[in-house]
């Protein structure tokens, strides 16, 4: 289902999450430059945005977009990893106006810059605030592999698989063929 939805969009990693454990059905890693294309597909397919948030990790900020659907229930999470020193992702507020505030909030809390946002001013913090409260110091940051697990991997680029070392070997053995296909498609 997801392969079809995202056909032609370059996906860094597509995994079927364990709904009973994570409350999510699909999890999709994307590069910042393919985010808008993927979100446009969701928009055409009638998904709605639940929220946007970020998680601070050793590898960078993981910006998360949670989507759900009115008819076909099943949470989908788009994940975009951006570096600490230049955290930029395109704003999806052109398609989902609900993101206007979620993105401002994420900018407040983590300092993520949403490019193309029409009004990226503080939402919840005071206008003069010069800090981002949810950014962790280097000591308390943890790598992504300690925070989440990959579910059933459908396709995955090496750069993402390298972040989750335990899963890497199994997934590569099972999904080697499909991965090559996904590469060819993109």
């Amino acid at each position: 289902m997801m392969d079809k939805l995202f056909a032609g969009v370059r996906i860094r990693c597509l995994e079927k999450a364990d709904y009973d454990k994570t409350g999510q059905k699909w999890s999709v890693f994307l590069a910042p430059n393919t985010l808008l294309k993927a979100v446009a597909r969701l928009n055409d397919d009638g998904w709605f945005l639940e929220d946007v948030c970020a998680v601070d990790s050793v590898e960078g900020f993981l910006v998360l977009y949670h989507f759900d659907h009115w008819q076909k229930s099943g949470r989908l999470s788009l994940k975009v990893l951006v570096p600490h020193d230049d955290p930029r992702v395109p704003s999806i507020s052109g398609m989902y106006q609900g993101a206007l505030w979620h993105e401002r909030e994420t900018h407040d809390f983590h300092g993520i810059v949403f490019e193309g946002h029409p009004n990226l001013i503080p939402l919840l913090l005071p206008a003069e605030a010069d800090f981002h409260p949810l950014v962790k110091d280097a000591k308390s940051r943890l790598p992504l592999k300690d925070l989440m697990v990959l579910g059933e991997v459908v396709s995955c680029e090496e750069s993402i698989q390298a972040l989750f070392p335990e899963e890497a070997e199994e997934a590569a053995a099972e999904q080697g063929g499909e991965e090559a296909e996904a590469e060819a498609e993109s």
């Binding site: 454990k21 994570t22 409350g23 999510q24 639940e50 929220d51 948030c53 998680v55 998360l64 949670h66 949470r75 999470s77 943890l142 300690d146 925070l147 989440m148 697990v149």
Partner: peptide, 24 residues
């Protein structure tokens, strides 16, 4: 255990949910 989880309920105002990341 470590992991991420998203849980939603129906509040009086609509979808009320918590996204949690645990490092164990």
């Amino acid at each position: 255990p470590k992991g991420e989880v998203y849980f939603a309920v129906e509040g009086a105002r609509g979808k009320t949910s918590v996204y949690l990341v645990s490092d164990g």
